[in-house]
Amino acid sequence: MKKFYDDVDYLLNEELSFSEVFYFASLIHLVFVKIHPWNDGNGRSARLLEKWFLSEKLGEKAWFIQSEKNYYQKHKLYYSNLRTLGLEYEVLDYSSALPFLEMLPQSLFL
């Protein structure tokens, strides 16, 4: 978790393009879910972290992005894309992450 928080802190202090903000917000979501630090609520916490990161980088309007609705409407794809990386943290294959990272379309912000 320390490495995760250090990485998030690093990203918060970096100048990122609009596309990079969405990419890293999705990656933060994905990594947190895969770390799975709690017995329950990991997905909800990951989605909140994603939205928080977007708002930190893009401003308060980011809280109005309907990402939760997007994930809910595509919940089968959401879970399928999560499983594609593997189930055990020690053997995750992040080279398979792109389908998940593309689930948060930038157009939700526009």
Score class of each variant (00 low, 15 high):
Met1Arg: 10
Met1Cys: 09
Met1Ala: 11
Phe4Asn: 07
Phe4Gly: 00
Tyr5Ile: 04
Tyr5His: 14
Asp6Gly: 05
Asp6Cys: 02
Asp7Phe: 12
Asp7Met: 09
Val8Arg: 12
Val8Lys: 13
Val8His: 14
Val8Ser: 10
Tyr10Asp: 11
Leu11Val: 01
Leu12Asp: 14
Asn13Arg: 15
Asn13His: 15
Glu14Ile: 04
Glu15Lys: 14
Glu15Ile: 08
Glu15Pro: 02
Glu15Asn: 10
Leu16Arg: 09
Leu16Ile: 09
Leu16Pro: 03
Ser17Tyr: 12
Ser19Asn: 13
Glu20Thr: 01
Phe22Ser: 00
Tyr23Met: 12
Phe24Leu: 04
Phe24Ile: 03
Ala25Ile: 05
Ala25Thr: 06
Ala25Pro: 04
Leu27Asp: 10
Ile28Tyr: 06
His29Gly: 05
Leu30Trp: 09
Leu30Met: 08
Leu30Ile: 02
Val31Thr: 08
Val31Trp: 15
Phe32Val: 04
Phe32Thr: 05
Phe32Gln: 09
Val33Ile: 07
Lys34Pro: 02
Lys34Glu: 04
Ile35Met: 01
Trp38Val: 04
Trp38Gln: 09
Gly41Tyr: 14
Asn42Cys: 01
Asn42Ile: 05
Gly43Ile: 03
Arg44Glu: 03
Arg44Tyr: 11
Ser45Trp: 07
Glu50Trp: 00
Trp52Val: 15
Trp52Gln: 06
Trp52Leu: 14
Phe53Ser: 09
Leu54Trp: 13
Leu54Cys: 14
Leu54Glu: 09
Leu54Gln: 03
Ser55His: 13
Ser55Pro: 07
Lys57Pro: 03
Lys57Tyr: 08
Leu58Asn: 11
Gly59Arg: 06
Gly59Glu: 11
Glu60Asp: 14
Glu60Met: 12
Trp63Phe: 15
Trp63Met: 03
Phe64Ser: 10
Ile65Ala: 05
Gln66Asp: 00
Gln66Glu: 05
Gln66Trp: 02
Ser67Ala: 02
Lys69Asn: 01
Tyr71Cys: 02
Tyr72Glu: 02
Tyr72Thr: 02
Tyr72Gly: 02
Gln73Lys: 11
Lys74Ile: 05
Lys74Cys: 00
Lys74Trp: 01
Lys74Gln: 08
His75Asp: 13
Lys76Trp: 12
Lys76Met: 05
Leu77Gln: 10
Asn81Ala: 06
Gly86Phe: 06
Glu88Ile: 00
Tyr89Gln: 01
Glu90Ser: 04
Glu90Gly: 08
Glu90Arg: 13
Glu90Asn: 11
Val91Lys: 15
Val91Thr: 12
Leu92Trp: 10
Ser95Ala: 02
Ala97Ile: 00
Leu98Met: 13
Phe100Asn: 09
Glu102Gln: 13
Gln106Trp: 07
Ser107Leu: 04
Ser107Tyr: 07
Leu108Phe: 12
Leu108Gln: 01
Leu108Glu: 06
Leu108Pro: 01
Phe109Gly: 05
Leu110Ile: 09
